[in-house]
Design a binder for these strands. Structure first.
Lengths: 345, 345
DNA sequence: ATCGATTGGTAAACTGTTTTAACAAGCTGG
DNA sequence: CCAGCTTGTTAAAACAGTTTACCAATCGAT
């Protein structure tokens, strides 16, 4: 069936005794083609196993049918379940909508060479999904004018006018704080994440305001940066508890830091949740497979990725309205949290 | 500096008062162009901010400068640190060599529609890196003839003649078994992974033969499938220990299953490594952040990905010899292993 | 002075599509 | 009976480069 040499549209046209324009129109289901001709050509296409060259298609057409996923320049960025969930959602949705997905990393030289613009100018892609971005990523402002479509995934910016699809971090933080306060915790530590990320600042914000509205004066010493990593989370837990051993709960900005904290407490023989409760943020797959299992906020990352992808494709095809979606999150109560130990017990 | 409208090669040629052929040759550093002309044209290119359209370049040239990474059709396939490490290595190396990376998933419909061939015929990519493949992936045999370049990453096949870059799983398994035997373990359980993966069979093979050469008769009940997941690992550990409570060590085919097993043992208050030692395989990032930290085999997955990528590009550019690389691995001793408890103690 | 080689450059063909304007044939209405 | 409208098809232009064959000018050697 499939011919030895690759067959082109000209070849199909020649054998079908029609023009290439006709073959092209058959391929694109143009209604100007008669039923009979359509059938004849289609049959030949199937028999020859003809597949249109998409380089030529994109060259003459308006779209490349390719999207870029831009990841931060962290070493081993892909080996991260957080990004993995987002990318899963993106790829699945893109595939369903006939799009291909290309991977890029926003390394310093990438941005310096203005490759984030170049991939549009050279027609590699139709749009960008920006993952893991923060306030220091100044290259994002090149997309504020809207010349090239870009959607910020799971973060947002007030300084630049950018499309975004994001989880409702504020609501998640509220749920955590309400829950901890309800369990009687008052001296709550906070393992902070990068301050240049807007959603992280939102969470800190809620942490502080919720404490205050519960009549607690948030101590400086209760907060420590954990750099988003297990190591950082462990160190932060140590720092907080050494500064104030009376802290009864730790709220971490993401699961990895929470797991690091958990590990540190286990090593130090601090009972979780008996002496200290721990809460994470993300609900990574293995948060349910540590001891004790981790109470955390479930983020619909797969859905965030999928929706961002869909909105981006809409933008590519002419959507005018800004994209600004916020997806609901919910607290998952597991074993790492319990009533605060009674004072003096 | 950058013009409002996009500038083409013709435009550059017109302004430089040379032919497009000359501009093309300047761009490709063709030595037929004189120093003076080269300078003149290059300066204009820089001033205009001209960037060649790579669709046109690929259309007339031989290469697309794009590689596909083919992932298995697991739900949330990307949210896996194992694949993440491989992809990190691939992307970094591809970027350095001027290649872009495209993501694909080998879902049933993808293969049924022969899209794995179509991405070549339609000129989406120059080559494929196949991750997470197994004996049931019959589509791989379409690449045995070598018409389109494909490299199997971290697995290999004897039934099909395919290029591959793989970790030395046999050596890793030997190191584990030697170590466990040396610690005095004899009743060693094995949390198996998919039997359709050649490297997994290799590990099982070594497990059995090493036991035998130590004079131990491998019991049927000591082996249980863990499906590569935490849940599966936990269930497998339970099954093995319920069948034979005298087992003193568990060897898992990957870290996720080992962590599942560890979790199960923690929950059951079985002391690790006091009563049961646990060994994994992969050395994922967070294997060092569980309690106790996991003894495991470190696989150079980042390097495997990078090397596979490099070899694939060589193949694309005409390399004739088969690719069959095997990278060394080593045991990382942490806290989850110890001397076997003395009998009757 | 003339032949042959070398150097630097160009016109034109080629890659494989989409799209537009034009056009022939058939049909309808006045 | 013919102007005007559909309907179906096509030639040709456009997309934006690379590559090849050829050509003019210069140079060295006889």
């Amino acid at each position: 069936m499939p011919e030895g040499k690759k067959v082109s549209m000209r070849e199909v046209a020649r054998l079908a005794k029609v023009s290439v324009a006709t073959v092209s129109m058959v391929l694109n289901d143009n209604p100007r083609i008669s039923r009979a001709t359509h059938m004849k050509v289609q049959r030949l296409i199937d028999r020859l196993g003809y597949r249109p060259n998409r380089l030529a298609q994109s060259l003459s057409g308006r779209y490349t049918q390719v999207l870029a996923v831009m990841l931060p320049a962290l070493r081993h960025a892909f080996a991260d379940a957080y990004f993995g969930e987002l990318i899963s959602g993106i790829c699945d949705r893109a595939g369903k909508m006939g799009y291909k997905v290309m991977l890029e990393q926003a390394k310093p030289e990438f941005v310096k060479e203005r490759q984030h613009i170049e991939i549009f100018e050279r027609r590699y892609v139709d749009g960008i999904l920006a993952l893991g971005c923060n306030d220091r990523h100044a290259w994002l402002k090149d997309f504020a004018e809207g010349k090239y479509p870009l959607i910020v995934v799971d973060n947002y910016f007030s300084q630049w006018n950018l499309d975004h699809v994001v989880c409702d971090y504020r609501s998640g933080a509220e749920q955590v704080m309400n829950y901890l306060l309800q369990l009687g915790h008052r001296r709550i530590g906070f393992v902070n994440a990068a301050q240049e990320i807007r959603t992280s600042r939102d969470v800190w914000d809620i942490y502080t305001s919720k404490l205050k509205s519960a009549g607690v004066d948030p101590q400086h010493g209760w907060v420590e940066d954990g750099q988003f990593t297990e190591e950082g989370g462990a160190r932060a837990a140590q720092a907080i508890l050494e500064r104030d051993p009376s802290v009864t709960a730790l709220f971490a900005g993401n699961d990895k830091m929470a797991l690091g904290a958990l590990h540190y407490l286990n090593v130090k023989n601090v009972n979780v949740p008996g002496q200290v409760s721990v809460v994470g943020f993300d609900d990574l797959r293995h948060a349910g497979f540590v001891t004790p299992t981790l109470t955390t906020v479930h983020l619909p990352l797969y859905e965030v990725g999928a929706m961002a992808c869909e909105r981006l494709i809409e933008r590519v095809h002419g959507r005018i309205e800004r994209v600004a979606e916020r997806l609901p999150v919910h607290l998952v109560m597991r074993e790492s949290t319990a009533m605060a130990p009674t004072v003096g017990a």
